[in-house]
Design a binder for these strands. Sequence first.
DNA 1: TTGACATAGTGTTTTAATAACACTATCTAT
DNA 2: ATAGATAGTGTTATTAAAACACTATGTCAA
Lengths: 229, 229
Amino acid sequence: MPHTYQYPRAALTVDCVVFGLDEGELKLLLIQRGLEPFQGRWALPGGFVRVEETLDEAARRELAEEAGLRNVFLEQLYTFGAVDRDPRERVVSVAYYALVKLSDHRAKAATDAAEARWFPISDVPRLAFDHRNILRTALARLQGKVRYQPIGFELLPAKFTLSQLQHLYEVILGAELDKRNFRKKVLSFELLVPLKETQMIGRHRPAQLFRFDPDRYEKLKKRGFNFEL
Amino acid sequence: MPHTYQYPRAALTVDCVVFGLDEGELKLLLIQRGLEPFQGRWALPGGFVRVEETLDEAARRELAEEAGLRNVFLEQLYTFGAVDRDPRERVVSVAYYALVKLSDHRAKAATDAAEARWFPISDVPRLAFDHRNILRTALARLQGKVRYQPIGFELLPAKFTLSQLQHLYEVILGAELDKRNFRKKVLSFELLVPLKETQMIGRHRPAQLFRFDPDRYEKLKKRGFNFEL
DNA sequence: TTGACATAGTGTTTTAATAACACTATCTAT
DNA sequence: ATAGATAGTGTTATTAAAACACTATGTCAA
């Protein structure tokens, strides 16, 4: 069923940079390509945008189809339009980045897509198309955004310790943080609710568990509050 | 000369939110539409992306064709992909925002396009398509970005006074700033070069003229410097 | 020529935020 | 009982931000 237009049109795709945190390490979800071009090469999950779906919908559909991911944090990143970024024809790609609570999704992702794998951010293989460039853009965005918006919680399990949170920030920002100053600051926002539970792993003192309070964040935001690590 | 594809494709456009500063007021450049849909309605300058040009090139071409603008500050903003944003068919638009030194361009713009006009940001008419929404996004971006990147200078003439600069920030941020603190801070960056000239307008003390030093900014940026008003 | 007017230009103090820094607490496993 | 490992806790010094008022220098009109 062909479709005809007066002028040539670019194909439109979405590509998703999916970040996860695994054992304190920042990881990236990649799909191994089954078809040419770049057959066998690792690539960002993504695909063509259908005419009856929005861009966000397309990104979420591809995440579900290719990686079994649902209900993740997703935000538009940038649109890549270099003329020769796809060797076949003109393809413009709207890139997204997603933050995944790996604790929730690990099991599923493993089953849904055999060709999907998590790679440490420090050890990403050669990528198809201009995906390396998209990844670089996403990392820069993540580093910028994590400072003034509480999106880091999207990478942690619902219940987490302050040490886990600090470690997350250290990994993303690539810098060591002072433990006392970090805890003081992050608690001062009153966005973290201490739970009655503690986490006991390893032979040492158990750690207090917290959860992030998104409702409270929304309220504070309306009052002109500014999260800033 | 028709072009045929296996699946239906969205049309791809660029739209530009063009800001200028005129007599201390923030203004927006709009084009009056000659064709349906929204004939006669004001709209952001923009148009279809050609298959042989990048998105940035398309945006610059449209700015030149529709408004006679060249060599302006231009940055990608966001890509708008609601399914029904164009009543004719599926159209995805990559939005840009541009900052124009109105002092340079006013004369040209007036001649090149009779149907182009500058509107005060506080008094924008009804707009075609979802352009009001694009404008809102652009304003939010401008307000955010102006704080930590020296893009404000793109709106001022090459030579400007500190009062003009302060007024610009006050207009964009919608807040009054303390004169002494502002001057102290902005001069502390050492990004402004005092000129040997002064500006004499009105019956009062003439003001020192400065220019922005982009080279110095690039150097400082590499050293991890952070512009932040 | 003088004075009214309008904007340019200039420092200090107070307050708040950030940065630097080291020890005690509590659990497990041997 | 203790060694080992991470959790948890305050104070001081330093730096940045905010608050604040007067003098300087030009034009223009009387």
